[in-house]
């Protein structure tokens, strides 16, 4: 759903006169929504600019994305970036976004408490 929302925003912003580039890890959704420019990274959802705590990899992915931003000339182009999540293990592709993928939603009372605690913590310190 995030991929659709991002593509829709890109199209509106681009039409308003500002060039856009979408990152994507969901190629079929991005193809359907058809944003002006995109780069595809075949990583599990939640890692569209790289793996956690790997700044060199994240930086390289962004450099590649920004290069595509400058070089894409045809509206609707999606450039595939050459990164592999794990050379020795592609099992994530079979399980990503399947049953059991999404964490259970916390009970409303717990979520409300977490929200109140966070807001209190920061309003005291600011």
């Amino acid at each position: 759903m995030c991929h659709q929302s991002v593509g829709l925003i890109a199209r509106v912003v681009e039409a308003a006169g500002i060039p856009t580039l979408c990152m994507t890890s969901a190629l079929d959704i991005t193809r359907a929504v058809n944003p002006p420019r995109a780069v595809f990274l075949n990583f599990p959802l939640g890692h569209q600019t790289g793996k956690p705590n790997q700044p060199d990899l994240q930086r390289q992915i962004l450099r590649d994305a920004l290069r595509a931003f400058e070089t894409i000339e045809r509206p609707g182009t999606i450039v595939e970036l050459p990164y592999v999540w794990d050379e020795n293990d592609r099992t994530w592709e079979a399980t990503d976004y399947t049953d059991g993928f999404l964490p259970e939603r916390p009970a409303k009372v717990d979520a409300d408490k977490a929200e109140a605690d966070r807001r209190a913590r920061f309003s005291e310190s600011s």
Binding site: S5, V6, L8, I9, V12, G17, I18, T20, F69
Partner: peptide
């Protein structure tokens, strides 16, 4: 998204004189 969120974002970006936008889904 198209009629409420996106136009507000576009307006923000224009008043900030942004030249280019990078969008990252999750």
């Amino acid at each position: 998204v198209r009629e409420e969120l996106a136009p507000r974002i576009a307006d923000e970006l224009k008043s900030a004189h942004v030249d280019a936008l990078l969008l990252v889904p999750a």
